[in-house]
Structure formats: C-alpha cells, structure tokens
Nucleic acid binder design. Structure first.
Length: 469
RNA sequence: GGCGCGAUGGCCGAAUGGUUAGGCAGGGGACUGCAAAUCCCCGUAUGGGGGUUCGAUUCCCUCUCGCGCCUCCA
C-alpha cells in the first residue's frame, strides 16, 4: 500500500486514487527562457521516479508536466536577444528535452504549453468573475480577490493576516488587497497579447496551471507536484482558482495529494536563478556521467535538501561504480534488457516497502547495495538480472557496466594524454604479455603509465580489464 | 516580525520508544608477483538543557544554530 506525504495535511497518507486504477498527476514544469539547472533536474528526476513507481505499481497514470512559454522574463529575454518569443522558447524547450533525455527522464504523457490554453484560462477567469472572486482593477488587470476565497492559505499554512503583505513588496495600489494576484495582465505597448472580454492582455502565471490541469486531468485529480518554492503562492493560488471556479457549493477538492520536492543547495543556500548560484545541467554533464547526477538525486529522500558540490558528485560516482562493478563481474549480457523484478525475492520486498513508504529511494538503494554484495559472492546471473531490474525501477543500471566504468566526461577527454581506446587496449595487451613473461618491471611500468592517465587495471581470471579512476 | 522545516559518525544519507540502514573515505586480514576489484572483520554519530518512560536518538518543552517561505523561482 503506497503512502504519500501530503503537503496539505503535513503527514503521510495512504494513497487512494479518485478513480482507480487510473491516476492523474500534474507537475509544474519549467519557464523556458534559459537552460535548466540542477534544481530543475531534481524536479524532473524526482517525479520521473514517482511516475515510474506508480506505473509499475499497476496504476494507469496520466502524467502532465506543463511548459510556461509566456511570461515577463521570457518577453524581456526575447527583447534582449533580439529574438522572437517563439524562437526563444522553442530553443530552450529543445534544450530541456536534451537534458531530460540525458538524465533518463521519460517524457510525460502530455506537456502542454501555456500559450495553447489561453482559451481555457479565459473561461476560468470568467467563472471566477461570475462568482465574485475576480475583479478588473483600475490599471486594466484582472485580479483574484483572495479575501473572498475562504480556504486561502490552507496549503501553505498561512493566514491572510499573518502574511503581512507589503513588508517585502511594494504594494500595488490598484489591488483591493495587497495579496490579490493577477489573473489577466492588460497588454503593454509592444508586448504580445490575446483578446479577451477584459481587453487585450496575457494570462498571469498562476492561472495557467489551474486551467491546464483541470482541462487535461479534470476538475479534480490525484497528485500535484512541484518544487517546494511553489507551495506559496503558486500552488495556493492554483487551489483558489480551481476550487473557486467550480460550481458553487460543490466543495470539491482540486487536488488530493500535494507533493513538494526539497531544494538543491549550493554552499548551504538555495540554488536559484535569482541568487545566480545555479549550475546548469549541461554544465554539470561536462564533468559527470548523467547517471551519476541521477543517482545523486535518487539517493536522497525527495523532500530533503540536497547540497550540491563536486565532492558529493564524486562520492555518488564511486558509490554507483560499486553496483556496476558487481554487475560486470556477474553478467554483461543483460545490458539494456532490464526486465521485471522478481517481487517475491527478499531484496525486492524491501525495495518495494521502501518505495511504498513515500518513495524512500535512500532505503530502496540500500537494498540494491545489499543485493550487490550477495551478487559479488554468488555471481549468479539471476541475481544480476534482479539488480538490473530493481535499478531500472529508478531509471538506473540500464547500461553495459563498461559504458559506465569507462565513461569519460567531455571536460576531461582532452586531458587524457591522448589515450584512445585502441591505445589503452594495446597497452593492456603489452602489459599482459610482460606479466606472463614475469617481467614485472615492465608490466608495472605500463600500469603506472595508464594510472597516470586515470586508468585503473583490474586483473581477473579471464584477463585484464580497465576502468576510469 | 509571522509561518514552517531541519540538526544522525571524517563526508553523504536512511530509520527507529529497547540491537542506530546503506554508500564514500579510513584501519586490519584473505586473495594477488605487487596492485586493483572482491570477500571477511573493525573504529567514530543521534546539537545543548529539562521532562514523560523501566528505557528517548525517536515523544513533549526549551535553548542554540542552520535553512526555507512570506516577491519571480523547481
């Protein structure tokens, strides 16, 4: 039985879908005006793991992750670049897809772009206006009147009076209440706009997700995810919009389970674009195997904070090498053919219990290491297959071991003293010959030469293999 | 200022009212020509102070420290 920590109740709850075995999940995706950073990588990987686990648990999942392709920053960036908005957003959507692919993130079932759902947003704004929850301000913007929505603050645990609006933000005097947020922004000179009953303009950010979510998944759905920073105000506003737009008196819940992943941090500070301390995914992938990045994310509980540093990624790389080393010793033939785990086997039982406990990937991975330890002793192909299959549940261990163990990051390829695979193999063969002739001075010389190039040799009964240090 | 989260060994990171996962790093042994890998064995941890309890790292209170949200943010 799957249990999920629900941000709404701040407790783990048994997961009961609205319409089993169907499950509908929406995750807030990216605003596409720049490259994705590691914070984005975490959202994508975390919910990719959630997605995989729901499906492998037998649920028929519909997974939606949106793309925000119209907003202030996009407009500004396009102007700066002298580039059209659509060219800019398409360019970064392509980059995002590349990054996601590298990290082993499967495509969601639907990736709606905000600009394609403006009609739905307008309908929802109209419903809100009809129910007295929206009003047009003096500056032409249409705002949401938070004081008129009784449940406002239930997700973030904030009360309107506690929010003390204006403390950190200049108060917008056209709003009835400083906490009111914009649903429809009236068009400014030179900005893209859509026609609406309230005049030309474009949607506010929050309405996008409510409109796309309800349009694609229904008025109510099971899971809504995103980064912790979206809990307030974004998700709070989504609830206010979606529930506020429902038929009066329904009292239905927009979303039953809210999931928020913790931040990625750098030097104990949140990694974010506004702080400027972010590392883009592609930057990191010049230094590290993408599977290392995925493993780094997966080995921590998704709600915890995750500190990024080269040291931690190197630690993750060494750790994952242990699993691949075990696979290599036992079996290389099952690469890429991760099958279904044998769920009756003890490690799989432990793995499943861990995953069912709010996606406890740390504990699930611990089961993988215990299995690897046994595999190192037995070398049994069935255990190797089981290790691969369980790793596959997390999107890990899908490659041939040598592909991982001999991986050279782009940033290091130039520093490898010009040693290509053929030269390495030739040196390994030369060393083996010297070793066989018991010329250990020569064989050790070659081994030292390779070590200087970052290559470690391993002698086995079947011959010598190599890996990257 | 308001609200919330957190503090576990050298590092990372789970869990738990009684024996504290797993990984990295480290020490010893086996194996090896020597190594590497692997196997076996082994240190060091629950921030401070109260309380509840037979027993607290776990529950409660408090203090200290750190972080997050209260503006755009994954």
């Amino acid at each position: 039985m799957l249990r999920i920590y629900n941000s709404l109740s701040r407790a783990k709850e048994t997961f009961l879908p609205i319409d089993p075995p169907r499950v509908r999940m929406y995750v807030c995706g990216m605003t596409v005006y720049d490259f994705c950073h590691l914070g984005h990588a975490r959202v994508m990987v975390v919910f990719d793991i959630v997605q995989r686990w729901l499906r492998s648990s037998g649920y028929q999942l519909t997974y939606v992750r949106n793309i925000t392709d119209i907003d202030d920053k996009i407009i500004r960036r396009a102007v700066e670049n002298g580039e059209s908005i659509s060219a800019l957003t398409q360019r970064f959507i392509d980059c995002m897809d590349e990054d996601a692919l590298a990290l082993g993130v499967q495509k969601p079932d639907n990736e709606p772009r905000a600009t394609a759902y403006v009609d739905d947003m307008l309908i929802m704004i109209g419903q809100l206006e009809k129910r007295g929850l929206a009003y047009k301000a003096a500056n032409g913007d249409v705002n949401y009147s938070v004081r008129r929505f009784p449940g406002y603050g239930k997700l973030s645990g904030k009360s309107l009076d506690e929010l003390r609006a204006g403390e950190r933000v200049g108060v917008d005097t056209t709003k009835q209440d400083p906490l009111d947020f914009v649903l429809w922004k009236s068009a400014k000179e030179g900005e893209p706009f859509w026609k609406s009953p309230w005049g030309n303009g474009r949607p506010g950010w929050h309405i996008e997700c409510s409109a796309m979510g309800t349009r694609l998944l229904g008025e109510q759905f099971d899971i809504h995810g995103g980064g912790q920073d979206l809990q307030f105000p974004h998700h709070e506003n989504e609830i206010a919009q979606a529930e506020g737009a429902m038929e009066a008196g329904q009292g239905k819940r927009f979303v039953n389970y809210w999931m928020h992943n913790g931040f990625v941090r750098v030097d104990d500070e949140k990694m974010s674009k506004s702080l400027g301390n972010f590392f883009t995914i592609r930057e990191v992938l010049k230094q590290f195997d993408p599977e290392v990045v995925r493993f780094f994310i997966a080995r921590a509980q998704y709600r915890s904070q995750l500190n990024y540093s080269d040291h931690h990624l190197r630690d993750a790389r060494a750790s994952l090498a242990r699993l691949y080393t075990a696979l290599k010793a036992a079996d290389v033939s099952t690469a890429g053919s991760a099958g279904t785990p044998d769920w009756s086997e003890p490690h799989a039982i432990r793995f499943r219990e861990a995953m069912d406990d709010d996606f406890n990937t740390s504990e699930a991975i611990a089961a993988l290491f215990d299995l690897a330890n046994e595999l190192n002793k037995t070398r049994a192909p069935a255990q190797a297959a089981q290790l691969r299959a369980l790793g596959g549940m997390l999107g890990l261990l899908g490659r041939a071991p040598d592909e991982y163990l001999q991986f050279v990051p782009a940033a290091q390829s130039a520093e490898n003293l010009g040693l290509g695979r053929e030269e390495i193999n030739a040196l390994v063969a030369a060393r083996s010959a010297a070793k066989k002739a018991r010329n250990f001075v020569e064989s050790d010389r070659i081994r030292d030469q390779l070590a200087a190039a970052g290559i470690v040799l391993e002698d086995t009964r079947d011959g010598t293999t190599w890996r990257r240090a």
